[in-house]
Every structure is written in structure tokens, then in C-alpha cells.
């Protein structure tokens, strides 16, 4: 699905990703953990094509295409989704209209006719139920006046609507209470198929109690320093990140 090789990227001359490599296959869930300021969110933004981040070296193949050659919007239409840590508010634009535009663009990109209004409404209803969002949210301005938890649920709702190949969840669990966490995790678990993949970025092990990853990677100073199965997350929770830091300073 995605193959990241020796990725170097940064912001305003400052290198943050320093040779990041990772392969994710269809059907897999990968989790990336690590201390603050280690480049986790930079990785998410860089993969999604945010222009404020500059790639200086490395290559990324996504579904057989050169990801770094595409603009952010094209990456999205090709099936890459980023659930934002801090979703932005867009006044006057309802979630419904926003999704209608996004789905239309994606379908156009894949040579499909716009979705019928009825089909769209059925899809909306189905996905709203998935993340337990009330329909009144759909006609409100996107994210405006939403609580932290509502914003995150709205991200998962959009993910469900767009049905991406690869979903990157950037600290979706931060600031969520236990109910919201369960709803978000439930959404991801139900959306999981053998054809799509998830990259879950998190600081805490908590979310991984609900979404069970196939692989856990520890990121430090811009690259992966340790990989393992789901038991690695438990180990991190027990020991904290200090031993990773120490280990890497020694190296």
C-alpha cells in the first residue's frame, strides 16, 4: 500500500524527519508512538502533502504511484486520508455540503459520475450511525462550535464517507473522554477491511486497547528506532519513553 524509504523532511530549514522508513501492506494497522517533538505529526503532514513541510530526500510509493510527486488534493483523491489533530472550522460551510464537494471531486478523479442525491443521503445516514453523530451536526458549519470530541468524531465520519485506502490518524485520541474514544475506535474497527490500511499516531497506549494494531513502531528524533507487535505498546506504557531516549543517546 505505502512504502516510505529514507524520508527526510522539515519546516523552515529545520530537519525533523531524518531518514524515516516504513512499509504498510493492505489490511494492516500500524501504530506509531513516541515522545513529544519527535516528528510524529510532521510525518502525518508530510505524507498528506502540506506545503509548509519540505521534503529534502527519500521516496514514497503509494498504491504504485510516486506520492511525493502529487499535490495534497491529488493524494487525497488517490485515497490518502488524514484525520487531523486539530480540525479547522469553516464558517458557513455545512458538513453535508463539504462532503458532497469532496465526494464529487474524488469520483470525478476516478472517472465516475457524481453520486445521486438519494445515494448520498443513504451513505450519510449509514456513516452518521457509525460514529453516533446526530444529524443536526450535518447542517451546522463545519466544526464551528463543536467540542473537541465532536470534532474528532466528525473526522472519523469524513473518513468513513470518503472510504480511503490509507487513513492516518494524527493523535485522534488526544483530548477524548472514554466514550468518545470508544466511538472513534469502534468506527475504525468497523471500517477496517483487507483492502485498506491504517496508520495510527498516538502518544498514549490507551487508544490501542480499543484498536488492536498489527505493528507498533517507536519513533524518536525523526525516525523509527524500534518495531514490534502490540506488546511493544504495553512495554512503552510501563517503562515510559526514557529508556528509548537513553538507548538512542548511547547509540
Amino acid at each position: 500500500m505505502i512504502s516510505i524509504k529514507n524520508l527526510h523532511a522539515g519546516i523552515e530549514e529545520k530537519e525533523i524527519l531524518k531518514g524515516f522508513s516504513l512499509d504498510i501492506k493492505a489490511g494492516e494497522i500500524h501504530a506509531i508512538m513516541g515522545p513529544n517533538g519527535t516528528g510524529k505529526s510532521t510525518l502525518a503532514s508530510t505524507l498528506a502533502g502540506r506545503k509548509t513541510y519540505e521534503v529534502t530526500a527519500g521516496e514514497v510509493q503509494f498504491n504504485g504511484k510516486d506520492l511525493l510527486d502529487m499535490e495534497a488534493d491529488e493524494r487525497a483523491r488517490e485515497g490518502l486520508f488524514l484525520a487531523f489533530q486539530y480540525p479547522v472550522e469553516i464558517p458557513g460551510v455545512s458538513t453535508t455540503n463539504f462532503m458532497r464537494a469532496a465526494i464529487a471531486e474524488k469520483r470525478k478523479h476516478h472517472g465516475l459520475a457524481p453520486m445521486e442525491a438519494k445515494e448520498f443521503l443513504v451513505l450519510m445516514r449509514e456513516k452518521m450511525a457509525l460514529v453516533e453523530i446526530d444529524k443536526q451536526f450535518m447542517s451546522r458549519s463545519l466544526n464551528e462550535g463543536f467540542s473537541g470530541g465532536e470534532k474528532k468524531r466528525n473526522e472519523i465520519f469524513q473518513m468513513a464517507m470518503l472510504n480511503p485506502l490509507l487513513s492516518i490518524l494524527d493523535e485522534t485520541d488526544s483530548g477524548l473522554d472514554i466514550d468518545a474514544l470508544r466511538i472513534v475506535a469502534n468506527g475504525v474497527n468497523k471500517l477496517r477491511t483487507k483492502d485498506n490500511a491504517f496508520l495510527i499516531i498516538t502518544h498514549y497506549q490507551r487508544l490501542l486497547e480499543y484498536i488492536v494494531p498489527d505493528f507498533v513502531h517507536v519513533m524518536y528524533d525523526g525516525r523509527i528506532v524500534k518495531s514490534g507487535g502490540k506488546e511493544l505498546a504495553m512495554e512503552l506504557e510501563e517503562k515510559g519513553y526514557d529508556w528509548i531516549k537513553e538507548e538512542n543517546i548511547v547509540q
Binding site: R50, D73, E105
Partner: peptide, 24 residues
Amino acid sequence: FYCNQRGLSDEEAVNIIVNGFCKE
């Protein structure tokens, strides 16, 4: 960027943001 990430081009993004701004 948020709009781009949902598959909307810059032009489409500006359009949707401006239309939202003028909705009233």
C-alpha cells in the same frame, strides 16, 4: 490544507470557503 486533504483543489477550496463566508 484541510480542504486539500479532503480532495478539493485550491480553487475549489477558495470557492467553498468564500461561499460559506457569504452564505448569510
